[in-house]
Amino acid sequence: MSQTPSQSGSSKGALRHEWVLLMVVALEWLYFNSVGPRFGTLENSFDILRHSVEIGLLALVMTPIIISGGIDLSLGSLLGLCAVVFGKLWRDGGFSPAAAATCTLALGAVAGGLNASLITWLRLPPLIVTLGTYSLFRGLAEAITHGADTFTNFPDAFLALGQERFLGVPTQAHLFILVAGVMWLLLHRTTLGRTVRAIGFSPEGARHAGLPVGRRLASVYVLAGLIAALAAIIYTARLGQARADAGTGYELFAITAVVLGGTSIFGGIGTLHGTLLGIAAIAILNNGLVHARLPREAAGVLTGALLLLALSGTVIPQLWNARRARRRRHPAPASPSSPP
């Protein structure tokens, strides 16, 4: 068949994007290392890690959601709600940190379940549903703290989760690596990932194949809620305080990392390792600017520019190829149309 060459193009294109991104990350590292004397130290690397874990966790669970063709704008607000609920349970409810954490994780899953049921049962668009819960969760967090209350003075054993090391690396890094590993397996080695991808390409096609569309969609939103709660606990431990505005805007950073990592906002296409690279690119940029004595405000500009550059860097070669292919096909004499 004549179509043979074109079909390998798509997978190669996706691969190329990750290589481009890896190069971006390497270049960032080399540049900041050359201008900031303290940038390359182990201590600073751990700093980068600590600061990127919470957004990173959100990006990890955002990846399957975006691959399914959906989006979750509520994760940052949910992080805030979970943080204050955790603080409230510990300080006013007399829960131990472990018990409070367990309840917080359950709350996260339930909140994710709320998104999931609105999206799968009522068939409301994810953008609208999570825009609603985005306000709802943040509003609840503010109601619990009356907008002013801050939970502090957590025991040292709990703060160790966010501030100490375990086996030589920041404690929360272990959790992040664990979640990243599990998410990678789910997305690339299980029928859940396969189904989510099929739904992202064609929800109706997936339904016609007898795939459990609703159940699989629900599970990625519940998982996202659960991990947002985990991120809230780590956030609280890192800063030593829980406030209603915790995690404001995190959902957008997470989405940026996912899209930068090569996941298509239209669904179907994307990898977890791409997202990891996306997180790294953003985290290193933000940290490096401080070391390079550049204004922090530059972070936003540069993150945006990076996203647009990386995306066009992937799309432009594809357009180029398509144009070349068209030109190759065009000069040939208009052959009588053959059966499709």
């Binding site: 798509s10 080695r189 859940l192 396969r194 064609s202 179907g268």
Partner: peptide, 25 residues
């Protein structure tokens, strides 16, 4: 068929539980 997906994945789409026990591809 889901046009963007490979032939093999399209063919096994309706028998996931049977061909992928435990959900592992």
């Amino acid at each position: 068929v889901i046009l963007e997906m490979p032939v093999a994945e399209n063919m096994t789409m309706a028998i996931h539980p049977r061909i992928f026990p435990g959900g592992w591809l």
